[in-house]
Amino acid sequence: MTLDADVRRYNREAWDRQVAKGDRWTLPVGPEVIAAARRGEWSVVLTPNKPVPREWFGDLAGKDVLCLAGAGGQQAPVFAAAGARVTVLDNSPAQLGQDRKVAERDGLELRLVEGDMRDLSAFPDGSFDLVFHPCSNCFVDTIRPVWREAYRVLRPGGALLAGFSNPVIFLFDPKLEQQGVMQLKYKMPYSDFTSLTDEERARYGDEPLCYAHSLEDQLGGQTDAGFAITGFFEDKHVPGDKLSEYLSGFIATRAVKPMAR
């Protein structure tokens, strides 16, 4: 992988491969989940485990929702079944295909758009009431454009619900971590493209490659874009993750675009 690697193209192909492999985040929800959502019984995640508080959403019925870099047949169909008008923007055609399968199976209406989370020019200003952005901004090299674009496409009073990684999770030696030893090895700014050796990158195989973004860019980037952060929680990784014994490596925020004066 060279320094001028096309990050978007590489990770698009990598996520398409994850769909073929049946990665956790590519498995569509079953018809029973959609049936429950139609009855008002539903929950979704922004981070690996914790359900997002229902009060973060308000009433979804009739709302315009953008699932930003959030395809895979999981959250978007649930929102549609709960009564929202849902658009999904994602970099991976195969991931978008998972949403299409659920929509066709369960008679849901979803608008599917292939694109870059940093560029929402396909949507006019003030197009959405809610932007739902699960952990995915580690797959692009810069995230402040993501926050600025989310702010632009939201209506005043609309909310951005975002999940992201604490950058510290990328900085430990993965070989030692597998042995139960936590030792810092890498520094910020961190990138799988530039921080790892060719041998280290080879261990990732065909998986997507990541960037670690500072909390200044994750949290400060939202407030600099104009958002007011009104909700916050932390979450841990899947069971068996050694680092989760020491800290919560994932963060979720609710941020609101202020009403126009």
Results as ranks from 00 to 15, higher is better:
190 Y>I: 09
31 P>I: 12
71 A>S: 08
136 S>F: 03
207 E>K: 11
245 E>S: 15
62 G>T: 08
8 R>A: 13
247 L>A: 13
134 P>L: 02
180 G>F: 12
206 D>H: 06
225 A>S: 13
179 Q>Y: 11
28 P>R: 01
200 E>K: 04
242 K>N: 10
141 D>V: 10
129 D>T: 03
42 W>C: 00
58 G>W: 03
119 D>F: 14
143 I>L: 06
249 G>E: 03
22 G>L: 14
215 L>K: 06
38 R>V: 02
140 V>G: 01
167 P>L: 01
50 K>T: 15
55 E>P: 07
27 L>Y: 10
28 P>Y: 00
213 H>T: 01
91 N>R: 04
109 E>P: 06
24 R>S: 12
185 K>V: 02
167 P>D: 05
231 G>M: 02
202 A>Y: 04
235 D>E: 06
120 L>Y: 02
49 N>C: 07
197 T>A: 08
258 P>W: 09
254 R>F: 06
226 G>K: 12
169 I>A: 03
77 P>W: 04
158 G>A: 14
139 F>G: 00
170 F>L: 04
162 A>N: 05
250 F>Y: 14
127 S>Q: 07
233 F>E: 06
157 G>A: 09
243 L>H: 12
169 I>Q: 06
57 F>C: 08
29 V>D: 03
83 G>S: 07
31 P>T: 10
206 D>C: 07
11 N>P: 05
35 A>I: 06
14 A>S: 15
88 V>I: 09
64 D>H: 12
163 G>N: 00
65 V>D: 01
178 Q>D: 15
102 V>E: 01
50 K>V: 13
220 G>T: 10
51 P>C: 14
182 M>I: 13
32 E>F: 12
124 P>L: 10
150 A>V: 14
100 R>Q: 15
173 D>S: 08
107 G>S: 09
257 K>T: 02
23 D>Y: 07
136 S>Y: 03
